[in-house]
Design a protein around this nucleic acid. Structure first.
Length: 334
DNA sequence: AAGGGCACCAACCGCTGTGAT
DNA sequence: GATCACAGCGGTTGGTGCCCT
C-alpha cells in the first residue's frame, strides 16, 4: 500500500501555490466565500494546502473514510485534520484513492463505449463514466481531450463536426469493435459487450453470416445519419442516397493498420494517406471541387468500392431502411 | 548529452443543482 | 420564497516525463 501510494503521489504533475488570476475576475462575494471556506476549514492562521497530495495525506484520507465513510466533504476534511478543502478531498478520493478505481489504458471496449456514449450525450463526462465501471469522469475527459480532440485537429475539423463524427463512426468505431472482439476471443474474462460483439461478428444467432455488421447511429435521436456495413469480405449495403456501396473491411483496415499495435488513434493517425482519403471523400461528398483535392481520387486504393460510402460523409442523410445494429441493440441482446 | 516540444493527467476553478433551514 | 451549504459537473491549467532532433 505504502509503495502504491508513494508511486501515486509521485506520479503526475500539477501546479503548486496559487494559480494565476482567472480570465474572469471573481466577484467580491465569491472572494469572500473563498476566504470563508479557507478559514472554516483550517482556521484563520492556516493556509490551505494545494497541489499534489502527499502519501501522508492520502493515508489520512483513506483511513478516515475507511472508519467514517465518505460524504460531507468539508466536515470530513476538518475532522480528518486534512488542511485541504472538502472539494479537494472529494476529488482525490473519487478520482484516485477509491479502491475500485481502474487505472491504465482504456481497452478497445471502453474506447468504443466512450465514443458511442459521447455521440449520444456529448460532454456529459459523469454520465458517461457511470457506464464504465472503475473509470472516472476526469479520466474520460482527459482521454477525450488528449486523444480524440487532437485527431480532430489533425483532420482540420471540429470534434463536434459531422465530418469528424462520421470519421469516428465509419473508421474508428468499427475498427475498435473488431479489435475488441479480437481481444475478447483471446481472453476468458470478457465484458458482456465484448461477448456480444463477438456474437455479432461471428453472426452467431443473428443472421450476420460472418459479417461484422455494425452501424453507428446519430446522437440523441438515434436515427442513423448514414450507414456503412463492414465485412471481412466485400458485401453490399444501401447508402442513404439509395445507391449500393461495398465497403471492404480489409481495404480500410489495411489502410489504417497499426504499424505495431498500440493506441488505435495513433495507429490510424500514422497513416496519412488514410486520413487524406477520408478528408478528400468528405470534400467530394460535400460537392467540393476535385481540383482542390490533395491528390487524384482515382489514385486512391479504396476508390473502387467507395462510391457509395462517400455518401455517408454527407450531413443530414435520411434514415436507413435495412437492419441496423447499434451498440444499444447489441447490448439489449445480451 | 542536451534541450525543446509535446502528451498526459492530477488537481484546480467557476458554475450549477439540490436539499436543508 | 430566500438564503445557505454542500455536492457535483465540466472546463482549464501546468508540472512531469517521454520522445525526438
Amino acid at each position: 500500500m505504502e509503495m502504491v501510494l508513494q508511486q501515486r503521489a509521485a506520479g503526475g504533475g500539477c501546479r503548486l501555490g496559487p494559480r494565476p488570476a482567472a480570465s474572469t475576475a471573481p466577484s467580491a462575494k465569491q472572494e469572500q466565500e473563498q476566504e470563508e471556506v479557507k478559514e472554516a476549514a483550517a482556521g484563520p492562521d492556516a493556509e490551505l494546502r494545494r497541489g499534489p497530495w502527499t502519501v501522508d495525506e492520502d493515508l489520512t484520507l483513506i483511513n478516515y473514510i475507511a472508519e467514517h465513510g465518505e460524504g460531507r466533504w468539508n466536515a470530513l476534511a476538518r475532522a480528518a485534520g486534512l488542511n485541504r478543502t472538502g472539494k479537494s478531498c472529494r476529488l482525490r478520493w473519487l478520482n484516485y484513492l477509491r479502491p475500485d478505481v481502474k487505472r491504465g489504458d482504456f481497452t478497445a471496449d471502453e474506447q468504443l463505449l466512450i465514443l458511442d456514449l459521447h455521440s449520444r450525450w456529448g460532454n456529459r463526462w459523469s454520465k458517461i463514466a457511470s457506464h464504465l465501471p472503475g473509470r472516472t469522469d476526469n479520466e474520460i475527459k482527459n482521454y477525450w481531450r488528449t486523444r480524440v480532440q487532437k485527431h480532430a485537429k489533425q483532420l482540420n475539423c471540429d470534434v463536434n463536426s459531422a465530418r469528424f463524427k462520421d470519421a469516428m463512426r465509419f473508421l474508428w468505431m468499427p475498427r475498435l469493435a473488431e479489435r475488441a472482439a479480437a481481444a475478447q476471443s483471446s481472453s476468458s474474462s470478457a465484458a458482456p459487450a465484448a461477448s456480444l460483439r463477438q456474437q455479432a461478428i461471428s453472426g452467431d444467432g443473428h443472421g450476420l453470416g460472418g459479417s461484422a455488421l455494425m452501424t453507428m447511429t446519430n446522437g440523441a435521436d438515434r436515427s442513423p445519419s448514414s450507414v456503412v456495413t463492414t465485412t471481412s469480405s466485400p458485401c453490399s449495403s444501401r447508402t442513404s442516397s439509395g445507391s449500393t456501396a461495398t465497403v471492404n473491411n480489409d481495404d480500410y483496415y489495411k489502410a489504417a493498420a497499426p504499424a505495431g499495435g498500440g493506441d488505435d488513434w495513433a495507429a490510424i493517425q500514422r497513416d496519412q494517406e488514410f486520413w487524406s482519403t477520408a478528408s478528400n471523400l468528405q470534400q467530394l461528398a460535400a460537392g467540393g471541387d476535385d481540383q482542390q483535392l490533395l491528390f487524384p481520387l482515382a489514385d486512391l486504393p479504396m476508390m473502387q468500392d467507395l462510391s457509395g460510402w462517400v455518401q455517408g460523409f454527407s450531413e443530414g442523410a435520411a434514415p436507413e431502411t435495412h437492419q441496423l445494429w447499434s451498440l444499444d441493440d447489441i447490448w439489449r441482446m445480451h
